[in-house]
Design a binder for these strands. Structure first.
Lengths: 343, 343
DNA sequence: TTGTACGCGTTATCAG
DNA sequence: CTGATAACGCGTACAA
């Protein structure tokens, strides 16, 4: 048996094919009895409209482009994977599909985007890792291509920390409030009785890294009444090894901290290792709640990825429909996944 | 300016639209001079054929479905992510796209597959984690839907370890030879001077787990001339905590092993932790070469994911074209990523 | 070698 | 509320 089509359903139901289309797209325009008969045939034959034909007619691919990042060296890459999963799920719930592409660099990304766009394979793009004056954002905006980014467009490295030229021209984005996350983490260990909380983060200049550091500093200021000591503010590259080294240094100094808030689970993993080596009772909090954190029982800041995906989707679909999203820029609050070591 | 189309290109080039189509799809059928003129216009206007229209005509979506697994608890999930990346890259190199979908369970997966298939959004599916008599495989095969799996269809848990009923009816697959991987790992630590090599793997019954154990056992038999001691064969659930516990037990026993080959990086991570705790000089080898392994300097068995993706794609595209793939079932050999702790 | 006619499956418009 | 007609953009026999 061939695949059912609009005309075959119409024939089986004894109506015209337009009636079938109406029954599906505007049920209120068709007589209840006819509707039931049509729907019955649809059900029996398992008919589904052909997306290609639909797209040809409506000029909508009902698909979103997503660039799969090059395999990252660290553990943090899993966050984007988890986001992608949430995005895919949210998209398919509203009848959209996520189409993947890869690119070695930003130039190649433009090529891929042109391919996807030119062949009308997608309606818009979900971007990640954008920064202020991002070439991709500008390129897309210049062509009127709908796009939303997961993550605030941080100022480019070395760029002045001023607001963008045209504040209103800033694109749509959804992000998670990293500062709120580390602040919560710091308050959490404070509540556990720790009075000396250090931070292990990345070198200054990375938007999200500075953001996470700021949350810790803010909490320390609030709780102790004075600014955190620079000695408690380690700045190293991401990774377990750098994290371990940084924490070993902290622990070997006089009057070491009893708790450490980290900018990533990788760093936290290293911090944990250092503590074990020194047999120090050190409470460690990670960031991103990656599978590793769960595996080793690490308390970690968890990003609300389902909510983030839903928000990005809401924004992008509004843009695709030519509307202004209700909330063009949205900052989501993370939560804390509290665990016990070995747990 | 509106999007260029076949007719607009024809108009600009002063030819009929059929000539444009020929210039693109059968360049040898058109006069060189005309060809040049047409291609020039195509280049200038950035024309690309509409995939929707093409698909409507050719009945090919040029898209492959891939189920994004639920976020896994362990670290091992990153292997599939890396495979997906490789697959996306390989697919786009031959003008195909990867379309994602998610499903909470196998029943829901069937629904999603019906959606994608019914709406003709994909030409076939790439499966992962299949087992013998897999309901999905049977379902797809029954409907003549092209599909290939990454991973051998292991016998279902509890099923007899016999070959499938109809050997020839087995579907297409590409897999990595896990046994070869652990055998290489075992020989590696042997070459390093270790004469007592233990294995930390999963409980019997998981296809790939048993496979990996077998490689270790084979190497030990070959190297020592006798079967490995059951005492050196730990069987625990996946995860750093179980791995740590298992290795603590091994180390606390009389005459402990000096090297451990693990069925996963998660287990290896736990093994490493146990060694540090006991201050034991234990060489640990993981499996899958996840980012974590690189982060903490863990030697690990690396799967050739690019080759696997290429193979899966070759098989699936052949199936889509109604042909029998040259190599319907392919087993790839892994390699060993040798690292030093802290590195 | 190039141009003409038709159909792929849908949706939108406009009569009835 | 229903049914005929057109059009979306492209590929492909077929005719010139």
């Amino acid at each position: 048996m061939a695949r059912p089509t609009l005309v075959s359903v119409a024939r089986d139901a004894g109506v015209s094919r337009q009636t079938v289309s109406n029954a599906l797209n505007a049920p209120d325009r068709v007589a209840p009895e006819t509707l039931a008969r049509v729907l019955d045939v649809v059900e029996r034959t398992g008919y589904r409209p052909s997306r290609a034909a639909q797209q040809l007619r409506t000029q909508r691919a009902q698909s979103l482009g997503f660039r799969l990042q090059p395999r990252t060296d660290g553990i943090g890459g899993t966050v984007l994977d988890a986001f992608l999963h949430a995005l895919t799920e949210a998209a398919q719930d509203v009848g959209h599909r996520v189409v993947l592409f890869t690119a070695a660099d930003d130039a190649q990304e433009t090529t891929r985007v042109e391919d996807l766009l030119g062949s009308r394979a997608v309606d818009g793009f979900v971007l990640t890792g954008t920064h202020r004056d991002d070439a991709r954002t500008a390129w897309l905006a210049g062509r009127g291509v709908p796009h939303t980014s997961f993550g605030r467009p941080w100022p480019a490295v070395g760029a002045p920390a001023e607001p963008p030229a045209a504040a209103g021209a800033e694109g749509c984005w959804t992000d998670v409030d990293g500062a709120a996350g580390t602040e919560t983490a710091t308050r959490h260990v404070w509540a556990l009785g720790h009075r000396r909380v250090a931070f292990v983060g990345w070198p200054a200049g990375s938007g999200s890294g500075d953001d996470r550091r700021e949350g810790w500093a803010r909490a320390v200021r609030d709780l102790t009444g004075r600014a955190p000591s620079p000695r408690d503010d380690a700045r190293v590259e991401d990774g377990a090894a750098p994290g371990r080294a940084a924490v070993l240094a902290l622990l070997d100094a006089p009057s070491p901290p009893t708790a450490v808030v980290c900018a990533s689970d990788s760093l936290a993993l290293g911090a944990r290792a250092a503590a074990v080596e020194r047999r120090a009772a050190l409470d460690v909090v990670g960031f991103d709640d990656t599978p590793v954190a769960e595996a080793v029982g690490l308390t970690s800041v968890r990003q609300p990825l389902d909510a983030a995906a839903a928000s990005v989707l809401e924004q992008l679909l509004a843009l695709v429909d030519g509307e202004q999203p209700p909330v063009p820029r949205r900052l989501l609050a993370p939560s804390l996944a509290v665990r016990r070591p070995g747990g």
